[in-house]
């Protein structure tokens, strides 16, 4: 879905000439794939893992195929403008953190706002309560007279839309182009983050932050220690985010010993 979102964003901007259109198409495209996932797993009760993997394959190949048939003949990869970094007046000149925190492309702020919004929805609204409850105890929700299927549809579609947004962030905010395999397993890392964060949004944000910090840290250290000529092989820096995540995971597991996974995660009803 990230890939589909990335392509959606790219095409949206390419044809719509606006980064905002790109963001919209990203979300819509990813939700389309999400709808397929929901139909297969919720209505037809297929195994969620298998279906998920197959849809990864489907999404990636579809995106690559569409991109290839449209731009395959181009000499160099076409570029788009994406979102320019915006200055938040005043704050961006704060020493040290100013540029990092307050001079990011718009999509980054959209993503952060989404985090806050998602937390609010999950904790403060009827649909959020229902989603949380549907995860904990689907029968309770059924007994409360709500359709578990409907709730799960909403959740899957929202999740897909957010994944699309993630793809859009990559394309519009960071790379400003589309390339094959650009997502590089980030969806799996996201799953890791969610488990790591014990299914809470602040936790997921923290997890993504740790991964992101380790990722940018390795780039800096790599540069500082002399790039490819350094004594320490570059691959060990690249490995760092994954090893860090694994270590955090081990420490968290030893301390926690208990997973806060919604009890009915992955169980069809």
């Amino acid at each position: 879905m990230l890939t589909v979102g990335a392509l959606g964003a790219f095409l949206g901007e390419w044809y719509g000439n606006s980064a905002w259109v790109g963001m919209m198409t990203a979300v819509v495209a990813a939700m389309g794939l999400g709808a397929l996932h929901a139909a297969l797993t919720i209505n037809l009760k297929l195994d969620q893992i298998v279906t998920g993997i197959m849809l990864v394959l489907l999404g990636v190949s579809c995106s690559d195929f569409v991109y290839d048939s449209i731009f395959g003949d181009a000499e160099s990869p076409p570029r788009i403008d994406g979102f320019e970094p915006v200055d938040i007046p005043g704050l961006s000149s704060v020493p040290a953190v100013g540029v990092i925190l307050f001079q990011q492309p718009t999509v980054v702020y959209v993503a952060l706002a989404t985090c806050v919004g998602a937390w609010w929805v999950l904790h403060r609204s009827a649909i959020g309560l229902t989603i949380r409850a549907a995860g904990e105890d689907p029968e309770t929700v059924a007994a409360a007279g709500k359709s578990v299927a409907q709730v799960r549809w909403v959740a899957v579609l929202t999740g897909a839309g957010l994944a699309g947004l993630g793809g859009a962030v990559l394309v519009l905010g960071q790379l400003q182009l589309y390339s094959f395999g650009l997502i590089a397993g980030r969806g799996w890392i996201a799953i890791a983050m969610v488990i790591l964060s014990r299914w809470t949004i602040p936790g997921a944000l923290a997890g993504a932050f740790v991964f992101g910090v380790a990722d940018s840290f390795q780039l800096r250290v790599q540069a500082a220690s002399g790039g490819l000529d350094s004594n320490v092989p570059v691959e060990f820096f690249q490995m760092l985010p994954y090893v860090t995540t694994l270590l955090v995971l081990v420490v968290a597991s030893i301390r926690g010993r208990r997973s806060a996974a919604p009890a009915a995660l992955g169980v069809p009803l």
Binding site: V121, R124, S125, A126, I127, L129, T130, R132, A133, E136, D137, T140, V141, A144, G145, K146, V154
Partner: peptide, 20 residues
């Protein structure tokens, strides 16, 4: 639902998908 309060549990059973 163990993680919710009395009122939240009852809100769960309210009709409609609107925000509470």
């Amino acid at each position: 639902v163990p993680t919710l309060t009395a009122a939240q549990n009852i809100a769960l059973g309210l009709s409609g998908q609107r925000l509470v």
